[in-house]
Amino acid sequence: MPGYRTLSIRVHGGNVNIELRHARIVTVIERVGSISKAATELSVPQSSLTAQLRRIENAVGGRLFVRSSAGVVPTSLGERLIPMLTELVQRADMVIVEAAAHASKVFRFGNSEWTPPSLHSALQSSLPSTEVQTETLSPAAAVDAVRRGWLSAALVPCMSLVEPDDTTELALDTAVIVREPVWLAVPRGHPLSDGPAVETRHLASLNWVRYARDHWFHPIEKQLFTRFPRTEPEVLHYVDGHHEAMSWVRDANAAALTTPTGATSDVSLVPISGTESTEMVMVWRSGSVARATLARLVETVRGYYCAYARTIPRYWDWMKEHPADFPELLRYLRTV
Score class of each variant (00 low, 15 high):
334 R>Q: 10
244 E>I: 14
267 V>S: 01
150 W>I: 09
148 R>K: 11
176 V>L: 08
317 D>M: 05
301 V>R: 00
149 G>W: 02
84 M>N: 10
50 T>C: 07
56 I>C: 11
238 Y>E: 15
197 A>K: 00
22 H>E: 08
217 F>Q: 00
320 K>T: 05
289 V>R: 05
86 T>M: 10
145 A>R: 10
247 S>G: 04
143 V>N: 02
86 T>E: 11
104 S>Q: 09
192 L>H: 11
106 V>Y: 10
54 R>K: 13
244 E>D: 14
54 R>G: 07
322 H>E: 03
77 L>F: 04
222 K>L: 11
142 A>K: 02
295 A>W: 08
133 Q>T: 09
168 T>N: 12
329 L>R: 00
294 L>Y: 04
306 C>A: 07
13 G>T: 14
70 A>K: 14
171 A>Q: 08
297 L>N: 00
84 M>S: 12
192 L>N: 08
264 T>E: 09
71 G>V: 03
196 P>C: 02
81 L>Y: 00
113 E>W: 10
135 E>N: 07
7 L>A: 14
186 V>F: 07
174 T>A: 04
1 M>E: 11
120 H>N: 11
322 H>N: 11
260 P>E: 13
88 L>F: 12
299 E>A: 12
232 E>T: 13
242 H>F: 12
309 A>G: 05
322 H>C: 11
208 W>M: 10
322 H>F: 03
70 A>R: 15
314 R>K: 03
44 V>N: 08
42 L>F: 07
88 L>E: 02
270 V>W: 01
73 V>Q: 13
19 E>F: 10
306 C>R: 01
204 A>Q: 08
235 V>C: 08
